[in-house]
Write a protein that binds this DNA or RNA. Structure first.
Lengths: 210, 210
DNA sequence: AGCATATGTTGACGCTGTCAAGATAACAAA
DNA sequence: TTTGTTATCTTGACAGCGTCAACATATGCT
């Protein structure tokens, strides 16, 4: 324990071994990702920023893809925490809870566009290159949402006639679509996004609802 | 006129000047795009496939981005033609027309995933790198869809209480979201897509509809 | 103390987009 | 027809990228 504490803050003495390169790389990658975008996030620049040689990261990540998966993994953890904050809130009418969830989803995407692209984009998923660790975080997130949809149906907020899985796929698809149109620069104007969300919520929830 | 006809089919005599390199490049690019994906579509491979030197394409496209925009442009033209085929069909009940349009949209994306990604993806739109020519084809497509939504509202198919622009943004967002989840490898299973589409259509159209 | 292992380094390779400079053909004007 | 301009195509070069191989150094266990 005390060894770890001593190792991490190597303030003035840059030693041959970094000590905590993996998490340092992850943090720096998150910053670079937010600042310059995924397009210009290169392992070489990242290593340079951290102050190690180009190939040092390869001792902590098999390749660039594994680094990206690790970043996405963190994103899912944080996102799930945000969502549960809303779901666990007590004394909230179902419609208001759904509203908060919907707007929260879009806000998360809008505030972290590059991260969102990594979490739900083709870079990772298209080539089936997702790490097992990433899958272990991502899949439960989806299922959690299906469970919430089922609850909303039972509460009379959403039409109970529709198959729960299909319904949650559609509602999620809508959130994903709006998020993507926004972060990909097609709905450049974020000022109308809230109205779009409310319109979608109207369409998905029953008028005579709780 | 007759000059052009003579120029194009340089069958056996490979001359210094290609004669019709621009469209040849575009065609080859479409093939490469479909076969190997946008990720591995490089100008060098493209030039090699066509049989010219690496830098020859630069005399017809300022840079790679302009080539991509030209491909996307073609995609919009074809897509618009497909859509108008459905819109102009006579004797179709509104709901059935909307159904065909929705399924047609998803099918187009599923059949041309890489092209769809180019047309509606961040590669082109995020950095505001879209050509004027591309904008001139893309924007009217959006507006055309808004017009159709208005008509569907007037016909009593969709809720007339919602703002037309917002409504079309949401319905388009849903189609876009489903399309993206499919082509990005998140909804890997295409067999359920039709059911998802019908579920969405149910949610967007009024029960007592024409 | 010695040795295995983890971690860091430089060198090299092939790939990419793109610029500069030169070669060749097409075309318009004289 | 000849001459000069322009469009088109060529090779050479450069910097950046991901990643492998070979080597250096520190850490930790026996």
């Amino acid at each position: 324990m005390s060894q770890q504490i001593e190792k991490k803050p190597k303030q003035n003495k840059p030693s041959y071994h970094h000590g905590d390169l993996r998490s340092t790389l992850l943090n720096a990658a998150n910053v670079l990702l937010k600042e310059t975008g995924i397009e210009s996030l290169s392992l070489r620049k990242l290593a340079d920023k951290v102050g190690v040689s180009r190939t040092a990261p390869y001792h902590h990540f098999k390749d660039k893809n594994q680094l990206l998966c690790a970043i996405a993994e963190q994103g899912f953890v944080h996102w799930q925490q945000d969502a549960e904050l809303i779901f666990n809130q007590t004394g909230l009418r179902p419609k208001e809870q759904y509203r908060q969830f919907f707007h929260g989803y879009i806000s998360y995407a809008a505030d972290n566009p590059e991260l969102y692209d990594l979490m739900f984009g083709r870079t990772i998923w298209k080539q089936n290159s997702a790490t097992n660790a990433l899958r272990d975080v991502a899949y439960p997130s989806f299922h959690y949402q299906v469970g919430m949809t089922k609850k909303w149906q039972q509460q009379g907020l959403m039409p109970s006639g529709e198959d729960t899985l299909r319904l949650s796929q559609v509602t999620w698809g809508t959130m994903h679509g709006i998020a993507r149109l926004l972060i990909d620069g097609i709905y450049a104007d974020r000022s109308h996004i809230d109205e779009m969300c409310d319109c979608a919520i109207n369409l998905f929830t029953l008028q005579i609802s709780v």
